[in-house]
Structures are given as C-alpha cells and as structure tokens.
Simulated scan of single mutants.
Amino acid sequence: MTGSRALPLSVLDLVPVPLGTGAPQAVEDALTYAAEAERLGYHRYWVAEHHNMGALASSVPLAVLAAASQRTTRIRLGSGGVMLPNHAPLSVAEGYRLLSALAPGRVDLGLGRAPGTDGRTARALRGAPGLLEEPFERQLADLMAFGTGEYPAGHPFAGTVAAPAGEGLFPPLWILSSSGYGAHVAAHVGAGLAFAWHINPDTAQARAAADAYRAAFQPSAAFPQPRVLVAASVVTAPTAEEAEDLSLPLGLMFLRLTRGESAPYPSVAEARAYPYSTQERALADSLRRRAVIGDPASVAARLCALARDTGADELIISVNIPDPALRQRALVLVMNAVRAHEAREVTPV
C-alpha cells in the first residue's frame, strides 16, 4: 500500500454452519454475504475448501461460487483455494472454465497443496492408493495444460479439450502459501501469491515470502506484474468487549478440530459455558489469537500495518463470526474503518 491509493479489500468465506442451523441456511447466508460484499466494494469473494468439518459447509467451493455468480454482477469470484491434491487436474480445469462461462472475466482460481482436512479424510477424497499422489508441481503443470490447451511436446494428454471450449475461459491462477514453497511456485508460473497469514501469523515470514516471490517472478499473460494478497482472520464489533466475546466460538471450534471432532460452529453462549481444562483454555485462546480481534479502529490499524509490513498489494479477510447478521455487520465495520484509517494517514497534520 503506497501513497493515497486505497488498499483493496476482499472476502474469504468458510461458509460457517452455526449451532441450531444446517447447510441449506448456511449456503443461503453465504450467497447473501457475497452480495453484501459486492455492495460494500470488496474486490473478491473467495470460498475455502474444507472437509469433515461440521462447523463449515465449504467442502465444494465451486458449487457456492456458481450460485454466487447468479447473485452478483461485479465482484470477482474464486477459490481460496482448490486443494489440488484432492482433485484430478482436468476436473478442476473444466469446473473453473465453466464457472468463467457463468461469470465472464471475474473468476480466480486459487490453488493449495494442503488437504484441507485430516489425513484419513484426505485419503478418502483421493480414492485408490496412488491415484492422486503426483507432486503438486506436476499436477499444476497438467492443470495449466488442460486449462489453456497449451501442451508441452510429448504430453500424454495432448489434444484433450477441457470443456467448455472457448477462448478466455481459464481464470488467472493464484498459489496459496503459508511458507516459502508456494512463493517459489507462484513466481515460477507467473501466478498471484496468496499468503495464509491467518494460518501462519508470522509477519516476517510473510514478508520474506513476498520479497522472494517478487524477486523471482516470471511475468505471464494473467499477471504481467507480481501481485501479493495476504489473508487475515478478523473478529470485530462496535466495542472491543463485544469483539472479544464474539471470538470465543473461534477458539472452541479450533480446539475441537485439534481433537478430530466434527460439530456445528459453536455459539458464544456454548463457548462461554464450555468446561475447559487449564490446558484446553490456553490452547483455545492461543488459536483464536491468530485472528485480528477488536473494535473497528484497532482492527483497521492492525490490518493496514499488516499490509505495510508484509508488502501486500491486497488483503483478504475471513470474518470468523458464525451469526450471519453480525458477520455482515463486520464487513461494513471493517470497510468503513480501513477507509477512515487511510484518510487519517494521508491527511496532512
């Protein structure tokens, strides 16, 4: 973020399933959320891929994004991301080419190499042993060949046409990273870099990854220049006290995930009443502290500092509040507070 240019803000949705509701309502809330993000001026709406998690309904981002394409007209839609080892590259290429036909010119394809779940579920997703055990970079090369129709000499699948056919349907690629490996891959293929600071909140490592990516970047048609997006979890409310309260379910949800439990996203009341042991309390608190928690002004200051310190060109925020109305309220609070913070920074003293 330089000078007086506004910091682009985007939204990452995990499609939470609050206690007492179900997937149909969670998906409907996600579509309303996407439309609200567009109305407020957010740049992208991305959906994460997670499996075997009762608290989240984001197992198939493509399905949510296809529905969101019919509720929005301007906001970019993308995966944050497709966990490529879980999928056949041709299937991914075809799915996101089709999404581009539904939302021409506004689709992103974010790719990660983590499973987005536990080891047993990852094995179930990948089918028979050895079916999808190719290295990530080999899968990525195949995906790009299928998506663009540009095959290297001798490629075993040369001539295969990813449907639907047509020019301009393969979306720009973003590589998700929580370390330096993804930065290397993104630079090599000329993709955007999305650093998962919400998973690895090490600002120095995020900056090192961004710097290494820019130094080694090889331009592509989709990315003539390098572009770094940094993801942050956010819990905000009009007061710091309310924000702290609203962050309690995040800690309990993460705690359950560490124990392999699948349950709906807990409520504030459930999280407050949970009988934590001393060790559980400490772990839940440390896990929820990965998020940026506080009143709008303090959250905006931290987000702008994060963009500056990591060298991010854009931030994408995951609002970890299960209540849909309060989650939408947080989108308004963050956008207004960040713009107000930027205005104060550029106003001469």
Results as ranks from 00 to 15, higher is better:
L62K: 01
V64D: 10
L65D: 06
A66R: 07
A66C: 08
S69A: 15
Q70R: 15
Q70P: 02
T72E: 00
T73S: 15
R74H: 07
R74D: 06
R74I: 00
R74G: 01
I75L: 02
R76N: 03
L77G: 05
G78P: 14
S79A: 15
S79T: 15
S79R: 11
M83G: 12
M83N: 13
P85F: 03
N86M: 08
P89A: 04
S91G: 14
S91W: 13
V92M: 11
V92A: 07
V92P: 10
Y96A: 02
Y96K: 07
R97T: 03
R97C: 06
L98Y: 10
A103T: 04
A103P: 06
G105K: 00
G105I: 00
V107Q: 11
D108F: 01
D108A: 01
L111T: 05
P115H: 09
G116D: 04
G116H: 04
T117W: 01
D118M: 11
G119Q: 14
R123S: 14
R126L: 06
R126F: 04
G130Q: 08
G130V: 11
L131F: 13
E134P: 01
F136V: 12
Q139T: 05
Q139M: 15
L140F: 09
A141L: 09
D142T: 08
D142V: 01
L143F: 12
F146E: 13
F146Y: 15
F146A: 03
G147R: 01
Y151K: 06
A153H: 13
A153Q: 13
H155S: 06
H155E: 02
P156K: 10
A158P: 04
A158C: 02
G159F: 07
A163D: 10
A163R: 15
G166Y: 00
G166L: 04
G166C: 07
G168N: 02
L169T: 00
L169Y: 00
F170V: 03
P172W: 00
L173R: 04
S179V: 00
G180W: 08
V185L: 11
